[in-house]
Design a protein around this nucleic acid. Sequence first.
DNA 1: CTGTTAGCGCTTTCAT
DNA 2: ATGAAAGCGCTAACAG
Lengths: 332, 332
Amino acid sequence: MARATVQEVAKTAGVSVGTVSRVLNGSPAVSESSKEKVTTAIRQLNYRPLASARDLRRDRTMRILALAKNLNSPVISEVFRGVGDAAALSGYVSLIAPTSGDLEREQQLVDMLRNSSVDGLILFSPTMSDDDVETLAEQFSVVQVCEIADSEAAFGVSIDDRQAAFDITRHLIETGYQRLAMIGNRAARSGRLREAGFRQAAAEADLSPDQMLFVEGDFDFHAGRRLTRKLLETGPLPDAVFCGSDTVAAGCVREITDAGLRVPDDIAVAGFDDSVQAEMCIPELTTIRQPAYDMGQVAFESLLERMTVAGAHRRGRLFLPHELVVRGSTKA
Amino acid sequence: MARATVQEVAKTAGVSVGTVSRVLNGSPAVSESSKEKVTTAIRQLNYRPLASARDLRRDRTMRILALAKNLNSPVISEVFRGVGDAAALSGYVSLIAPTSGDLEREQQLVDMLRNSSVDGLILFSPTMSDDDVETLAEQFSVVQVCEIADSEAAFGVSIDDRQAAFDITRHLIETGYQRLAMIGNRAARSGRLREAGFRQAAAEADLSPDQMLFVEGDFDFHAGRRLTRKLLETGPLPDAVFCGSDTVAAGCVREITDAGLRVPDDIAVAGFDDSVQAEMCIPELTTIRQPAYDMGQVAFESLLERMTVAGAHRRGRLFLPHELVVRGSTKA
DNA sequence: CTGTTAGCGCTTTCAT
DNA sequence: ATGAAAGCGCTAACAG
């Protein structure tokens, strides 16, 4: 059975295509009897309006695209859950696509916005340049989330990473730790901001350079182990390590423990994100809670404004509050 | 600047729309000079073919949709990475959408297949009934992955969950464990199969019912802790616990450790999936490796066949090999 | 309230 | 090799 069209539904129902279309779109200007006939015909023919034809006429799709490098991070999946729920409330479908950090793949996906496969785009840490993002955001509806451009190339929603890192470092210092280390990630914008916050807190506490170690690499468990090993081997030993993510912190705790040292008695460890990893560690991690789900919701709502309000500003940023969560991986 | 159309490109290039279209689609029947003029005009006008118009004419989209309940599992994100890479190789874009276990949301997304927003669908544990999947698969290109219907409602790619659970349980028994417990999840099809494999291995080893405890619940860390606590409180104590996922096993190890018992000396623990969780545990988990990435690739290739080959069979299943990985959470 | 019709932007015959 | 024109399925403007 080939797919039915409005024409066939109209014929079956004994009305015109206009009436069918009106029923389809919930127009009030249809008699009860017509509506019923059309509804019956639709069911009978198992009819669905063809998306491409409808999109072509309406000049919108009611779909948005959310891009990220990968999906295996708790923060990303939670952000996108927020995006999806908010989108659904407004009748939009949100589609997700990982780029694998491949610029070509990213371009292909961004082209879905350019060719109107989707009405809007949410960008989580794009590979493309700020300039490209800016050009895109001038012409289309784009919102960045979590990893947002310093330059305000587009509209962005995030926590204040620098401040959050400052807060948790400050907490470590106030707790009495004096030889701090950080495991960071300069490849990510948020990573650089967290480093800045860490350094600022250390500087304000007048820590000398050798009281402030810094190593950096990827943000996964194995990198966390490797970088911690480097830290332990290099000496002098820090008494507290601030890690740029909970996953890295998990690797850090593991490596310290394996080296026969105790957390937090010999070395304290702090994470970032408050993902489930933080609770899986022994001891559980002191960390920064990111309101990931909320950020997703807010990101969609910002995008919606840009998609529907003519004069909506294309640039700017919105910071959501973060929260210090103190657990057993640092002393009280 | 409003978006350009083929018409405008044609006018700018001084050729007909037919020629523009031919250039766009790489038709060989275009002179070099025309091609150059068109290419120049396209760049000048920053032209992109409108997806909906193109899809309408071509009657295909070169996009597929991959559905899952959520994205926060290592297996799912790895499967979808495989899908995405394989799709890209064939010129398809793969879009991902979580349903949050909401049937209505799932219907809306499945409608993207019915209304030709996408050419094919990959289903990971749908909420809808086997009958609905079957009806869908008869009419459209659908492939299930990981959670596949016993009834062969559609074409499915997975490991043999029953066999894998049998293998790891058998390993525990051969290692010398005699009082087994399993933490399962009857809500998932794979969970029920793993339970069956566990019971079969236990039965073949003539374990008595009280040597074979079983509890079940969700497949997350906290559920793992809670169910393990139940196991420990209920007694008699098992000497080995097989968990239906690494995440649950992590919770299990944690709870056992917190109770002052040692893994594996007092109680051994085995997981399932060989996700990064397995390596994050102390001790690291004995588990079953699922070739998640490969399953994703194969799932896409199966889907591609169904989308492009007229007589492709709509039903059946394909099992990929699993592998027992022995680590410190069980004795050698 | 309903039917008729133009046309969204594109691809693809069919001529030439 | 190229242009002209039909038409994919739908919505919305217009006429009645």
